[in-house]
Amino acid sequence: MRFRWKKEVPYLLFLVPAFIVYTVLIMWPLVQAFGLSFTDWKGYTMEGLNFVGLKNYIKIFGDKEMVYAIKNTIVYAIFNPLFVTVLAVPLAVILNSKMKTKNFQRAAFFFPSVPSALILGYLWSYIMSPLDYGVLNRLVTAMGLEPVLWLAHPKVALFSVILVSVWNVLGWHACIYIAQLQGIPEDLFEAARIDGATTLQMFFRITLPLLRPAMATSVMLLLINALKIFDLPFALTGGGPGYSTTMLSQVIIQRGFVDKMYGRSMAAAILFCIFVVAVTVVQRKAAKED
């Protein structure tokens, strides 16, 4: 097909504004970040810039905090999607059944997804506090157990972050499943019931397989958002104690904006980007083959 400029120009004009902002504010910065990650750039000016090859990339793996952050982010990106999915599917099935207060319940479970994660993080930092007003420990001690250092113990803190994050997004993801459930014809269950299937059998043999497209969407969103996580641990633990809940986003910001190690920060940012894109592509492929 020949491209007839005269005919297409009026249409190409429609693309101009989006093309400009997208190119200037996403693609060009990406190219810049990529280029500068191979240099010893010190900020301010582009003069006296030296090409240092892969030095910045190699240094990432000698940077203790970055290695911790990579590990934490991976742990978080495994368990947050896992827990959310395991809880959201049954929750969606329940919220899709015939109940009088169904709408209220959906609204209630969804609500924690609405406010900024920063505020929710601060709120939970009060709830999980070891001080008197930390109600979670009051509950724990009321049950006759030892109080837990939810946010101050290096082994527990990451678990606490995951716990709050699950609470945060559970309703949203249940909603994705409800959407799909509504498309499953009731006859399928009727037929199964006549054949003598139990509720559990129907869940595993009918509902779960039919929910696979929704699961592909939900898990992909969970994974990508988990890799990018910043606000919630920032507010809840500030990355501590030590580096036990420091996430990759936080350490990239720390190295770039605070420590002025621009090269290393951007090298990590580029690796991070490649990782996010790879996960998305692999996930998409897997979902398509399904």
Partner: peptide
């Protein structure tokens, strides 16, 4: 592309 990747530029 994550926001964190392009924030310095």
């Amino acid at each position: 592309v994550p926001a964190q990747t392009i924030m310095i530029p």
